[in-house]
């Protein structure tokens, strides 16, 4: 005999889909029900097994290639048959940069020693964001609002934080594309400099800050709690390191 809530509230509670008021109410139910707590444990064990088994299957390279092939030749033909327009040029430039950034990250993310090439791809993405003017999907200095915007768009929990008191004002966030995958970006300003912090999940262990510069832009890269961060800006490296310390503390 199962509890009446097993097919509804119990699932919502387990999946974090209940409002906080409903969740509190359901917790009261959990203290009295003899069935739901047992099912909750079963669901948790199952979910953990599914995660550990890594059942997610990414698209094979051959599929990506076919999809690209379907897009590209048409693109070239269209360009030739029409007078060149500025936005087509811009589009081509953006595509080219994306492809270059994609290649680099694609070829480096799977190796351990990839700092230099990663920096290249990330700095390119940074420059691209400045050129395209597409900086924020959400413009807000409110941590909750930014976190709320990212929630549901990301498969990991993004720690958006405002450090205005320490001189780094949160401007908002956006999703960016590197290697055909979504990465999250937090945007800050500090004494007139714009800082992009690229954030994505990683399997790697925590690392301390790695620093470097390229094309007049400084970058600081670190990993913490299965998340990799790379801050990029024309601000001095010491500023970026300060931001890194704020994030990790």
């Amino acid at each position: 005999m199962r509890c009446d809530f097993a097919d509804s509230l119990l699932q919502g509670y387990f999946d974090g889909e209940l409002s906080s008021a409903s969740a509190v109410e359901f917790e009261r139910h959990l203290q009295q029900c003899t069935h739901c707590p047992v099912e909750l444990v079963d669901m948790d064990l199952l979910s953990e097994r599914l995660q550990i088994a890594q059942l997610y299957e990414s698209a094979p390279a051959s599929l990506r290639k076919k999809i690209r092939a379907n897009l590209r030749p048409v693109a070239a033909a269209t360009a030739m048959s029409q007078p060149l327009r500025w936005h087509w040029l811009a589009a081509a430039a953006v595509l080219l940069l994306l492809v270059i950034a994609g290649w680099r990250v694609n070829s480096v993310l799977r190796t351990d020693d990839y700092q230099a090439e990663l920096a290249e791809a990330i700095v390119d993405a940074h420059v691209l964001s400045l050129q395209s003017g597409h900086l924020t999907g959400i413009s807000s200095n409110d941590e909750q609002a930014v976190n709320g915007w990212f929630k549901g768009r990301l498969k990991f929990v993004l720690p958006a934080r405002d450090f205005a008191n320490d001189g780094f004002t949160l401007q908002g966030g956006r999703l960016d594309v590197v290697d055909e995958r979504s990465v999250a970006v937090l945007v800050y300003t500090s004494t007139g400099h714009l800082i992009n912090v690229f954030v994505w999940p990683t399997q790697g262990r925590d690392t301390s800050a790695q620093v470097g510069s390229r094309q007049g832009y400084q970058w600081v890269d670190w990993r913490k709690g299965r998340i990799e961060f790379c801050a990029v800006s024309d601000a001095p490296t010491s500023d970026l390191q300060q931001l890194q310390r704020l994030f990790t503390n």
Partner: peptide, 19 residues
């Protein structure tokens, strides 16, 4: 061209999910 770019930016990142 504009839509194609949007398609590449918005939809292609989800090819893994599709597969």
């Amino acid at each position: 061209a504009e839509d194609r770019l949007r398609f590449e930016q918005l939809v292609l990142p989800h090819v893994d999910a599709a597969f």
